[in-house]
Design a protein around this nucleic acid. Structure first.
Lengths: 178, 178
DNA sequence: CTCGCTATATCTCGCGCCGATATATTTCTT
DNA sequence: AAGAAATATATCGGCGCGAGATATAGCGAG
């Protein structure tokens, strides 16, 4: 899914500026399964207007830099429809922490412990945010996706909590053996 | 974690060719939390030898193209140590399927159903592969990471199985309402 | 027996994207 | 009153991904 399509998805929920689109990936409804930074959003928005998949209105009433609000066009909705109905590619998961923990024997035990504890806290925070997002009258799609995120973060948190001691214990044994 | 470091990680487990490094991300011990293709591995290996973090031996005994076997150096082990002891960045999860399912109301119900069923099968397959990987006498790090992968895929599979009907039902209701 | 598929093996190219950075103002916090 | 955070747009360099080129061996189906 390229960033152009991702932006189209955000715009399908309502008009938005580049900054607001960014927030949709930072905090908003897409935050737990897609991401995009300014470096990809602004060029994508440019292409989108060039291809007439979105239009741009400049609102200068703010004292801040002119706010450019983008709106999806009928052609844009069609492009989103086409993208959604293409075969989705596989999920991608990348974890630098898991790579590091694979080599846990190269780390001081205290560090292993701290990294995992920090990550548990992080999952707890995300879980709280996701629960705050949920409300009644959600469409089936967004609700399904939100609850999936909740399930996955809860699972990761539970695994780390239940197995933290095993890793610490295992590495400690190595230290004693040496 | 750049591909250079990822390659160093594979080489730390034993000497390998570019092709074998690829397999470590396709099937091997890193497959469920990192990925890298030839387009990134070969340039990374070149840089690694330039910086003397790895050395290269050419084995021409095969009838196939010369096999270049790479070996990690002491300097390379130090670089891996440094990378592992740097603060890991956050996990990244990207799912085109979840993006599509967010807009489930733009899809025929049959398609929604089929996509989810296919994904359940996929998780089952990965789960089987991961279980086959597990054996006794695993170091604590690799074991922890492998079991994490198992837990996450089992969780995703269970969620999809338990909530598939809700999404189908929800979208059906919409169709009846129209 | 041969056709094609899969596995082994290396490498390039272009496009897309990410993180860092620059810039400027307002509003909230201490 | 100072400073941090939020609002807002934009660029740039480098990394990396997917697709494809190239070549050979082995294996099973027809």
């Amino acid at each position: 899914m390229d960033v152009k399509t991702l932006c189209l998805g955000v715009l399908a929920l309502g008009d938005a500026s580049g900054y607001e689109i960014r927030k949709a990936f930072e905090d908003g409804p897409f935050s737990h399964f897609q991401e995009a930074g300014f470096g990809s959003i602004y060029p994508a928005l440019k292409k989108l207007t060039d291809e007439e998949l979105a239009t741009c209105f400049e609102h200068q009433q703010d004292s801040r830099p002119d706010k450019k609000v983008y709106q999806i066009t009928a052609k844009g909705r069609q492009a989103l429809f086409d993208a959604v109905n293409r075969e989705p590619s596989g999920d991608k998961f990348r974890s630098d922490m898991m790579f590091a923990l694979f080599f846990a024997d190269l780390m001081p035990i205290r560090r292993v412990d701290r990294i995992i504890s920090d990550r548990i806290d992080h999952h707890a925070q995300v879980l709280q945010d996701l629960e705050a997002c949920e409300h009644e009258n959600m469409a089936p799609g967004p609700a399904f996706v939100l609850r999936f995120g909740r399930a996955m973060h809860a699972c990761a948190k539970a695994y780390l909590e239940n197995h933290q001691h095993e890793l610490i214990g295992g590495v400690l044994q190595r230290d004693v053996a040496q």
